[in-house]
Design a protein around this nucleic acid. Structure first.
Lengths: 137, 137
DNA sequence: TATACATATGAACAGATGAGCATATGTATA
DNA sequence: TATACATATGCTCATCTGTTCATATGTATA
């Protein structure tokens, strides 16, 4: 249990009258640490945004989806071709495209019986490129 | 079933003598699509790299880890302070820091009983910033 | 070296996730 | 409108993941 630490500190709470811990400070050093902790907290974005951010990266965090996104770097592709290209089932690709669509990472257009998907956002390229730089080190 | 689509296309296969589908082309249009698919495949990075890339984004894909990383944007922090700051258990923070450490996203130094963690890579900031741009739209 | 503090880690459990199957929906054409 | 093709989706299952608890390891100090 963490009942002792139940004093929750929130970025949106007014912090002037709040102590971060129930114990009195024992030294200047501890007091300085308190200030750092408070400062970090005040600079932290809202929980909701950080949650959304994690959700976004979660979408990139699957090799099937990464492969699909990479396939769309140069050109739009229909579902069947993506499946063929990556040796995946049509169902799997369709499920993943839905996730990518919901995250606004891909868009689509219908052409006859086929649906062509393409990247919806230049951020996709930037994010993947940044990740690639880290991976390739 | 997708038995008809069993003809697997691989990036590492030599592609000159391979047909992408068992059926003969029915039109120029289909032939052009074949070329596109082949081209996309040849430009796709190795599976291993794409897998590593997905693994990296998976690390960013958890709000606890995102919060920890964000906390380290400005300053190094010890485990206990991170836990206090984010209202998490010491154990949980320690487990997550290990994952971040293994991905080379954070580094640490020991100072007495405490261990101070900090960002290990400027890419962390870039990647998170890129994600933030997308989320904040 | 005994004790307290700070962190790390193994095990277990609940919840999330991705793939495949079966089938529904949408579209073109005979 | 019946049929075939292309895609989407509900369901299920095996696997993965994050948290907690209990405890081990590491460090400073009385």
């Amino acid at each position: 249990m963490s009942e002792k630490r139940e004093t929750v500190i929130r970025a949106d709470a007014n912090s002037d009258n709040e102590t971060l811990a129930p114990e009195p400070f024992e030294s200047e050093f501890l007091a300085a640490r308190e200030d750092v902790v408070k400062k970090v907290l005040s600079q932290q974005p809202d929980d909701e945004i950080l949650y959304d951010l994690a959700e976004l990266f979660k979408v990139f965090g699957d090799s099937t989806r990464i492969k699909i996104l990479y396939s769309l770097f140069e050109t739009e592709l229909c579902v069947y071709d993506i499946a063929r290209l990556l040796n995946l089932s049509q169902s799997s690709v369709s499920h993943q495209l839905r996730i990518l669509k919901n995250s606004k990472l891909v868009k689509f257009r219908r052409e006859g019986k086929s649906v062509f998907y393409s990247l919806d956002d230049e951020h996709v390229r930037s994010i993947i490129s940044m990740g690639m730089e880290h991976v390739e080190e």
